[in-house]
């Protein structure tokens, strides 16, 4: 059973501490939602876990099946089984998803013909297969970008996926296909999910086992799916005050 263990993680960007000690543990096959207001540090957590340049770890640990992720380069974290679905997937002119995935060292779980896998996965999330041979994310709509991220997720078959606001910029149909694909992956190969989101609508199809509330760089509340519904009604005001004390 795979597990992502985050212990007392303190991190920042540009000399400013943003995460003040995060503890989370995500097991294979489970979905954890991290919800919180804008500026609470949710996206920082996602990029610190993947190792984006410019983010600095100041303390604590993050391990995947006992492997210290924070010591690894981003590509090694990917190879170790971590995936990051980005809020704003980056445009890479002249490099296709096909070429990128063919060069990936993280494809140990999907042996077989990459083209066939991509065809099948694109169809599954309603993504135009021909876009997989074009420049990554260039000229794509918000929905296409996130569907593209899901095709990549399925081709790489990571153990743990961190999804950073994967629901942003999506219409209802795209939201449904993206969240359904992730939900299915938890069954298909026991994907563990850390879903970072501002809105509970992501969790209509993708069923969270645990909901964490993040405010001002800390986890300030934990609960079951009912916590997401509660946030939908009351908003984050109470938690923001909590964190401010």
């Amino acid at each position: 059973m795979s597990v992502l263990e985050i212990r007392e993680l303190v991190a920042g960007v540009a000399g400013r501490e943003i995460l003040h000690g995060i503890d989370l543990s995500v097991e294979a096959g489970t979905v954890h939602a991290v919800m919180g207001p804008n500026g609470s540090g949710k996206s920082t957590l996602a990029h610190v876990l993947m190792g984006r340049p410019g983010y600095t770890v100041l303390g604590g640990s993050a391990t995947l099946d006992g492997v210290d992720l924070l010591e690894l380069a981003p590509w090694e974290r990917s190879r170790a089984g971590l995936f990051l679905g980005m809020q704003d997937p980056i445009e890479v002119p002249g490099v296709s998803a096909m070429a990128m995935l063919a060069a990936s060292t993280a494809r140990h779980a999907t042996a077989g013909d990459l083209g066939a896998i991509l065809d099948a996965e694109a169809t599954r999330v309603g993504y135009d297969v021909s876009l997989l041979s074009r420049s990554l994310n260039l000229g794509l709509s918000g929905g296409e970008r996130k569907r593209n991220e899901m095709v990549q997720l399925a081709a790489l078959r990571p153990r743990i996926a961190v999804l950073d606001e994967v629901d942003s910029g999506l219409d209802v149909d795209a939201l449904r296909s993206v969240s359904a694909r992730v939900e299915a992956a938890t069954e298909e190969w026991g994907l563990g999910v850390l879903a970072i989101t501002h809105w509970s609508r992501l969790l209509d199809v993708l069923r969270a086992d645990v909901v964490h509330v993040m405010a001002d760089g800390r986890i300030v509340a934990n609960g079951g799916p009912e916590l997401a519904s509660e946030l939908e009604e009351t908003g984050y005001a109470a938690y923001a005050q909590h964190a401010g004390t």
């Binding site: 993947m50 984006r52 340049p53 380069a73 981003p74 590509w75 974290r77 990917s78 190879r79 995936f83 990051l84 980005m86 997937p89 980056i90 445009e91 890479v92 002119p93 002249g94 490099v95 070429a99 990128m100 995935l101 060069a103 990936s104 060292t105 993280a106 494809r107 420049s135 990554l136 990549q152 790489l156």
Partner: peptide, 26 residues
């Protein structure tokens, strides 16, 4: 761009090679 490719498991030198070739493809 390099970070995006690396986050998909592409080693840095290969990521850079793909980006440089992609740069010229236009």
């Amino acid at each position: 761009q390099r970070y995006y490719l690396e986050s998909r498991g592409v080693p840095p030198a290969e990521a850079e090679r793909l980006i440089v070739l992609g740069f010229f493809s236009e």
